[in-house]
Simulated assay, not measured.
Amino acid sequence: MSNIALQCVNVTVSFGALKAIDDVNYDFETGRVYGLIGPNGAGKTTLLNVLAGRLPQHEGKVLCDGDDISLLKPHQRTRKGIGRSFQITKIYPDMTVLENFRIAAQIKHSRFAPFWIAPRYDRSLAADIDAMLEMTGLAAHRNDIAGALSYGLQRALELGLTVLPGPRILLLDEPLAGIGHHEIESATRLILAASAGRTVV
């Protein structure tokens, strides 16, 4: 059995005459953590968008566990076990932290329930939500409106939303960007905890 979780095969993306990424070939092994390093405009976010299905490659293909996923939409890649966070935080700002996590938990369990039913009545959802509240350090903020959190806590929330559905592959776009110095250590611990047993790019 191959230990390659994700593959780029001759991947090229062009914007007009500009090649944002050119003939990229790389194998991302299962359970390993990778860092993409380069200046602004080097194509790091473009590559992550291609891997996540948010941007089509113009040449080449993307494989997940040996299967060609080049034509799959982002939600279809999510079902294949690929999770994606963003350089600009994407959360549900008008909802509470608990409600944000409940959406992610329902995605994991492939079912949705009315929001007026408290999550404690669904033990499987509640257990996953409680575990993520603890892992992200957001337990004390469970009833806070997400948009009112500090930026560092919003980043923690977004990472929790990415991890809670249970992806095997995490695509993290500058997860420490914009976080204050006093939050770097806790954010790094959270990323390491989220990375356990997963392929991370």
Rank of each mutant, 00 (worst) to 15 (best):
M1P: 02
S2C: 00
N3R: 04
N3G: 07
Q7S: 15
Q7N: 14
Q7E: 15
Q7W: 04
C8E: 08
N10W: 11
V11F: 04
V13C: 10
S14N: 13
S14L: 13
F15Y: 15
G16E: 12
A17S: 14
L18P: 08
K19G: 06
K19H: 13
K19W: 08
A20G: 05
D22G: 08
D22I: 06
D22F: 09
D23Y: 10
N25I: 06
D27P: 02
F28L: 12
E29P: 00
E29N: 11
E29C: 07
G31R: 04
V33I: 12
G35A: 15
G38E: 03
N40F: 02
A42E: 07
T45R: 04
T46L: 03
L51H: 02
G53M: 01
G53C: 00
E59V: 12
E59L: 12
K61D: 04
D65L: 06
G66M: 01
I69K: 00
L71W: 01
K73L: 06
P74G: 01
H75E: 05
R79N: 10
K80T: 03
G81Q: 08
I82L: 01
I82W: 01
I82S: 01
R84Q: 01
F86C: 02
I88T: 12
I88D: 09
K90L: 06
I91L: 11
D94R: 14
V97T: 08
V97W: 05
L98R: 15
R102L: 03
Q106N: 07
I107P: 03
I107F: 09
R111V: 04
A113H: 14
A113K: 14
P114T: 05
P114H: 04
A118N: 15
P119D: 03
P119C: 02
R120H: 15
R120D: 13
Y121S: 15
S124F: 13
A127M: 14
D128N: 11
A131K: 12
M132V: 05
M132F: 04
M135W: 06
T136H: 06
L138I: 06
A140L: 12
H141I: 06
R142H: 08
R142E: 06
I145D: 09
G147R: 08
A148I: 11
L149A: 11
Y151D: 11
L153C: 10
Q154L: 06
R155T: 09
A156M: 04
A156F: 08
L157H: 03
L159H: 06
G160N: 07
G160Q: 04
L161P: 02
V163W: 02
L164W: 09
L164D: 09
P165Q: 12
P165K: 12
G166F: 14
I169H: 01
I169S: 01
I169V: 02
L170K: 01
L171T: 01
L172Q: 04
L172V: 08
D173W: 00
D173N: 00
L176M: 14
L176G: 03
A177V: 06
G180K: 11
H182P: 08
E185V: 11
E185F: 08
T188Y: 07
R189A: 11
R189D: 12
I191D: 03
L192G: 08
A193F: 10
A193H: 14
S195F: 01
A196I: 05
G197W: 07
